[in-house]
Design a protein around this nucleic acid. Structure first.
Length: 669
DNA sequence: GACGGAGGTCTTTTT
DNA sequence: GACCTCCGTC
């Protein structure tokens, strides 16, 4: 490990802090990741066994970043400490201990899509379906309650959705358990339950984990904090790092109050504040500080930088969303042409994933390589999910969601009525669906053709199970895909042959990914791969990122990252701040923190853009500039208006918007 | 009873 | 634009 000579006195103090609770209040760009990385490395170098050090972060991205830094410091001399996300750590615990809670070891992790299927299914049991059911809202309510550590509260019974959610929750939980599946929230909740219920389990993990470090502490929820607190008690070798100005996960149940109550929970705590920013120029910091200072009830603090005033922050007014993409990518093209920077130093950040498309179109046209982080994930594509569902069902035959997905895909003549009949039988007999299916031939109400299809399907899956094994994952997947004709089905599912070909390609890409995984983890089985898909699917696409690709990402996924040139786009009322942020109290302040996070990602230049008209939901809308633009300081801002002297296309576009605007005004009176 | 096409509805952020 | 539901046809 390199010495600590490159650190400032307070960073050094944090690194050298001997033991006991440590709270590091670290503003944006103050060398937070660097400081924890050094601290972890030092713990290992001064004699802590690497496996006794556990560092947890909130997102895969920040965990990965921290892991890389620690590895670089330790070189390959030592075994690396465990640097991971809360969810992955819990998977590790559960794979070893979950049988104590009555699950089987080969449990499946359900993602949001899987969860929605379960909600719809249990809602059907109580005769709520179709238009009467907002499954997303029910799921959200359940998830929110679980993040706070419990079941949804029906309240006083006047809120229809709370009532429905609390009514469906027990059925939802039972269904998951019957399918030997857990959702994201369960990962945390069940690990906590294990620690709380079985003292020997807790003791074992406490003996193993001697030092805990938590990054982005302001984003932890009640369950996550309980987990680390249990592990750290009573010795208190716990280090937490956070910044309440960067708390942007309140909507997911994060409790930024954790950061304030930390000192009360750990009386011997040492508090260290980092406020020198090593990332951004003074101009960028001043702009960001001006915006965040509009939040009430915030602990006043100011970051400082000695990187010089730098270029002014630019605010660009664009005619339309398309024009905005032209403006931003045009600027990047110019930067690249002048050889002032590489593509990898540029990032476009937006509030919602849907905004990426316009930028992608222009980037493709300009033949600039780019990566989109998140968004429509590779693993969210239908054809990919179909193959993954086959794999999931082969792995865990109780996984009913995956079973129902593949049972009649590609078509085997097993339609809705037959499936319904099977489910009915499974429910009334309390038997797993697969068991019912094995007796389908003798079941009343199931035709002989259907029974034949079911039997063939089961035989296929039984056969397929023998195709998989450590080191044979990609072989099994390829054989399975070929046998059921997945590629053909994918090609036939769309009219455009080009799109069909791409879909087939995606299926082959999953098989390639399995082959790669096999090489990296020769001992691992299907379960490890599937857990990785659901927990870290987003990181797959990151492997494409390099110094030659422009990065497109939401502000949420940008947290913890930095780029020399940042373009923060779509700064319009109802988009950023988002229209739905007004729903809960504190929503607007969270939006402002989000804007702050976005702005403080920038090192050398920051460009903020907004459009006066934008097509949303295939409707043209008039857009007012975001209030956050009004909150910028008077000085040090360079403004540009692209609506003047534009090409004809944009003028026509503008006329169209003006017309729409007039229509709206008329409609109002 | 299965399947494909047409039309209506809703769009935040992540593990 | 994506997803879901409904409806007509085989």
């Amino acid at each position: 490990m390199k010495g600590v000579s490159g650190l400032n006195p307070r960073q050094k103090e944090a690194v050298l802090h001997e033991g006991g609770p440590l709270l590091i209040l670290a503003g944006a760009g103050t060398g937070k990741t660097r400081t924890i990385a050094y601290r972890i490395a030092r713990l290992v170098e001064t004699g802590s066994p690497p496996e006794s050090v556990l560092a947890v972060a909130f997102t895969n991205k920040s965990a990965g970043e921290l892991r890389d830094r620690v590895r670089a410091l330790l070189r390959k001399k030592k075994k690396a400490p465990l640097v991971t996300t809360f969810h992955s750590f819990c998977v590790r615990v559960l794979r070893q201990e979950i049988e104590r809670l009555g699950y089987k070891r080969n449990f499946t992790i359900y993602d949001t899509t899987d969860q929605l299927s379960v909600v719809k299914e249990v809602a059907r049991e109580v005769h709520v379906s179709g238009r009467d059911l907002d499954a997303k809202k029910v799921l959200w309510t359940i998830s929110r309650a679980k993040n706070d550590g419990g079941a949804p509260d029906p309240g006083d019974g006047t809120d229809e959705y709370l009532l429905l959610a609390s009514r469906l929750y027990p059925r939802y939980a039972d269904a998951l358990k019957a399918y030997n599946a857990v959702d994201f929230d369960d990962l945390l909740l069940l690990a906590l339950r294990l620690f709380n219920t079985f003292p020997d389990v807790l003791r074992r993990w406490k003996e193993r984990v001697r030092h805990i470090l938590v990054d982005e502490f302001q984003d932890t929820n009640a369950v996550q904090y309980d987990l680390v607190r249990l592990l750290a008690l009573p010795v208190g070798n716990i280090t937490v790092v956070g910044d309440d100005d960067q708390s942007i996960y309140g909507w997911r149940g994060a409790a930024p109050g954790n950061i304030h109550s930390f000192a009360a929970d750990w009386p011997r705590v040492k508090v260290i504040t980092l406020d020198q920013n090593y990332r951004s120029t003074v101009g960028i910091l001043e702009a960001a500080n001006a915006v965040i200072s509009k939040n009430a009830g915030r602990k006043p603090k100011k970051l400082w930088s000695n990187l010089g005033q730098g270029d002014p922050v630019r605010v660009v007014t664009c005619a339309t969303g398309e024009d905005e993409a032209e403006a931003v990518i045009g600027r990047i093209v110019a930067l690249l042409a002048s050889r002032k920077c590489r593509a990898g130093e540029c990032a476009v950040m937006f509030r919602t994933n849907a905004q990426s498309r316009l930028f992608e179109d222009v980037l493709r046209r300009e033949k600039i390589r780019y990566v989109v982080i998140g968004g429509m994930r590779f693993y969210d594509r239908k054809e990919v999910r179909d193959l993954i569902a086959y794999l999931s069902f082969v792995f865990n035959e109780r996984d009913e969601v995956s079973l129902l997905r593949v049972l009649n895909y590609p078509s085997r003549g097993i339609g809705r009525e037959t499936v319904h009949r099977l489910q009915q039988e499974s429910l009334s007999g309390g038997r797993p669906l697969t068991e019912v299916m094995r007796r389908a031939g003798s079941l009343e109400g199931i035709g002989s053709r259907q029974a034949r299809g079911i039997a063939d399907f089961l035989e296929l899956i039984d056969q397929a199970r023998s195709w998989f094994g450590p080191g044979r994952l990609s072989y099994g997947a390829r054989r399975l895909a070929e046998t059921v004709g997945l590629e053909d089905a994918a090609m036939r599912s769309v009219k455009d042959p080009e799109a069909g070909w791409r879909k087939a390609e995606n299926i082959r890409e999953v098989i390639t990914a399995l082959a790669t995984f096999e090489q990296q983890e020769p001992q691992a089985g299907l379960g490890e791969y599937l857990a990785g898909v659901n927990l870290a699917g987003r990181d797959e696409e990151d492997s494409d990122s390099s110094s030659e690709t422009v990065t497109l990402l939401t502000v949420h996924s940008a947290k913890g990252l930095e780029f020399p040139h940042v373009f923060l786009v779509g700064l319009e009322e109802d988009l950023f701040p988002h229209e739905r942020s007004g729903a809960d109290p504190g929503g607007m302040e969270e939006e402002r923190r989000l804007a702050y996070v976005g702005m403080t990602r920038a090192g050398r230049t920051l460009t903020l853009t907004h459009a006066v008209g934008r097509t949303r939901w295939s409707k043209d809308m008039v857009c007012t500039p975001s209030r956050f633009l009004d909150e910028l300081p008077e000085e040090g801002i360079e403004r540009e208006d692209r609506r003047d002297g534009e090409e004809e296309v944009d003028l026509i576009e503008e006329d169209r918007i003006a017309e729409e605007y007039i229509k709206r005004i008329r409609a109002r009176f």
